[in-house]
Amino acid sequence: METPDPSFRRRLLIESLTMLAADAQAQVAWLNKYGVMTDEIALDFDHAFRMAEALVAEGQLTGEVTADLREIDVILSGMSDDGNAEPWTRDALSTDDGWAQARRLARRVLVAGLGEWQQPLPKITVVR
């Protein structure tokens, strides 16, 4: 399988970070609009992060950004470790410390890369 080009990987990463960085109310509205579960936000980040590792290898991401991305990955993975479903509710987006930490880090990465964390939320196509 051919590796997607860097611009595609970068766009995917920015879109996933945009979702993570959004206020909880915006995240809930986006989830409702597309009829997807809360974990979709984390799954999108996981997919983008795995693809972004090639950007790291190519030197396109700074060490500080890479460290923040890895920390987001650890936080989101840790939310799944204990089998607790609580972090994956829509209410948890505004109350859970893990979501708050991931949001803060995502905002920092977006500011570092784009100068601003608030971006339009991505549009997706859901295949059922």
Results as ranks from 00 to 15, higher is better:
56 V>Y: 04
6 P>W: 13
67 A>D: 07
86 E>N: 12
72 I>D: 07
5 D>T: 05
44 D>E: 14
64 E>K: 15
12 L>Y: 10
6 P>V: 11
125 T>R: 14
91 D>N: 11
5 D>N: 14
123 K>C: 10
74 V>E: 11
42 A>P: 00
11 R>N: 05
57 A>Y: 04
40 E>T: 15
79 M>C: 13
54 A>C: 07
36 V>Q: 07
74 V>Q: 10
43 L>K: 13
54 A>T: 15
49 F>Q: 11
71 E>D: 15
19 M>K: 03
60 Q>I: 04
90 R>S: 04
90 R>E: 07
90 R>V: 02
73 D>H: 13
13 L>A: 04
39 D>I: 04
96 D>G: 02
68 D>T: 07
90 R>D: 00
11 R>G: 00
14 I>Y: 07
56 V>A: 10
116 E>W: 06
90 R>C: 00
73 D>V: 01
54 A>R: 14
17 L>Y: 03
56 V>G: 01
109 V>K: 01
49 F>A: 13
105 L>M: 03
3 T>R: 14
100 A>I: 02
6 P>Q: 10
93 L>S: 03
108 R>L: 09
37 M>L: 14
89 T>N: 05
36 V>E: 06
42 A>D: 08
78 G>N: 09
97 D>T: 10
47 H>G: 03
65 V>N: 07
10 R>D: 04
81 D>L: 15
71 E>F: 13
73 D>N: 14
32 N>H: 12
15 E>P: 04
60 Q>R: 12
55 L>R: 00
70 R>C: 00
62 T>K: 08
67 A>K: 15
49 F>S: 09
108 R>P: 00
104 R>F: 11
100 A>C: 01
91 D>Q: 14
127 V>I: 14
89 T>I: 10
110 L>M: 05
45 F>Q: 00
35 G>F: 11
108 R>S: 14
86 E>F: 12
28 V>Y: 08
27 Q>H: 02
109 V>H: 01
24 A>V: 06
50 R>Y: 12
11 R>I: 00
85 A>L: 13
23 D>T: 03
76 L>V: 08
87 P>H: 02
4 P>C: 01
58 E>W: 13
22 A>V: 10
91 D>K: 15
104 R>S: 14
68 D>P: 05
48 A>R: 00
15 E>Q: 14
119 Q>H: 05
21 A>W: 09
11 R>M: 07
37 M>K: 12
74 V>C: 01
87 P>Q: 03
61 L>F: 07
76 L>Q: 07
24 A>P: 06
77 S>V: 10
59 G>I: 12
88 W>C: 09
103 R>A: 10
3 T>V: 15
